[in-house]
């Protein structure tokens, strides 16, 4: 291949010519070309990376990190707020419960007081009625006893008269009183 150009170049050239088709890597004639283009390539890549790509990616990554941190902070804040709201809710609930308890207790006390008043009144009334009834009963009893005494005296007088005696009303009274006592 490259023999045409390198044949005349002496010992080194002949060596290169022999190796050229075998191992292109050892064809030192081509090294200059490769090294030249390699250095240009590396320079271009280095320039592109260090000036454009790497700062940009670093910025994007930093921004993403910032966004994530912000979002986390925001989420933390929201969580705190939610916690506060929950606390407030719990407190309100507890207050309402306590108030309800109070109201219930008050109502209970009121009802109990009313009940007591009503019971007392009813008791008093019952007592009054009982006393009245007892009085009426004792009157009736007394009346009945008097009636019995009268009947007994009348009967006794009639009996005595019928038997031919003269009724001594005082004696009859005493006898009747004697008998009706027991």
């Amino acid at each position: 291949m490259a023999t045409v150009t390198t044949e005349a170049a002496g010992e080194y050239g002949a060596d290169a010519a022999a190796s050229a088709p075998g191992m292109p890597q050892l064809n030192f004639d081509h090294w200059g070309n490769q090294i030249f283009w390699l250095l240009i390539t590396l320079a271009v890549i280095y320039f592109v990376l260090s000036r454009i790509a790497l700062p940009r990616i670093a910025a994007v990554l930093a921004e993403r990190q910032g966004t994530i941190t912000n979002d986390l902070a925001k989420a933390e804040e929201l969580k705190r707020q939610a916690g506060e709201a929950e606390q407030a809710y719990d407190k309100a609930l507890a207050d309402a419960r306590a108030e309800a308890q109070n109201i219930i207790a008050e109502a209970k006390a009121e009802i109990a007081a009313e009940l007591k008043v009503a019971t007392d009144k009813a008791d008093a009334e019952i007592a009054a009625r009982t006393a009245e009834s007892e009085k009426a009963i004792s009157e009736i009893r007394a009346g009945a006893l008097d009636n019995v005494k009268e009947v007994a005296r009348d009967t006794a007088e009639a009996l005595v008269t019928a038997l031919g005696g003269r009724a001594d009303s005082a004696a009859i009274d005493a006898a009747v009183a004697e008998r009706t006592k027991g």
């Binding site: 070309n33 592109v48 790509a53 790497l54 990616i57």
Partner: peptide, 27 residues
């Protein structure tokens, strides 16, 4: 068939493609 210092060869082409790929990905 002459490969001089500044000749545009297949080396140039594939190195250029590598640069292109780097630019495409990173930029």
């Amino acid at each position: 068939s002459e490969v001089g210092m500044f000749t545009i060869t297949n080396v140039t082409l594939w190195m250029f493609l590598a640069v292109l790929a780097v630019v495409a990905l990173m930029v």
